[in-house]
Amino acid sequence: MADSNDSPVMGKEFLKGLWKENPVFVAVLGMCPSLAVTNSAINGIAMGLASTFVLIGSCALVSLLRNVIPKPVRITTYIVIIATFVTAVDFTLEAFLPAIHKELGAFIALIVVNCLILGRQEAFASKHPIGLAVADATGMGLGFTFALLSLGGIREVLGNGSLFGIDLFGAGYEPWIIMILPPGGFFTLGFLLLIFSWVEQRRKLRTQQPS
């Protein structure tokens, strides 16, 4: 599949998910998990990787079956495929990482209704061969993980004074409790989106006036 002609395209499909079409910061998809479980960096990574696994698995399967699935029932088929992978992740985490499974709770199961995953099946995997579909899914998944990690990192540093559970500022630091409570999730994502659109606008201005 990956001969010399294919690899630049594959690289492009992989990279676009990381920054240019980042699912959270640019497309604003998959909001529920990205706000609900990111009160610490480690939860963000766990959620991101679980979603990435589901995304890659279901994209590969949908791409393989894309000529077999009848058009009228395609959405239902995608959901059943996604739900199967999520059930697998749910039980695997419960068996091997019970602490994290308990932290994330019902949100592991709720990966099923993450619009990012269904969106990739409909927009990409159902129309492309498996190599490209997996590249796209991996990029999107890692972009999602990156977004969750930055949200979780910011909220943990400000709200708890630590990162990955390691104390950063010593006992003198007064944590902003609000950042690990629900309003902090809305505020952090709101301000990150602000920064993103500020950078975009600066870039546009610079290209408009080259001199």
């Binding site: 604003v28 309003p183 809305f186 505020f187 709101g190 989106l193 606008q201």
Partner: peptide
């Protein structure tokens, strides 16, 4: 301001409402 319009503004408003609900 143009930069703040859209999702960013909605999220910040939602955050303030959520603050009230706390």
């Amino acid at each position: 301001p143009k930069m703040v319009q859209g999702t960013a503004l909605n999220l910040i408003i939602a955050g303030i409402i959520s603050l009230g609900f706390m």
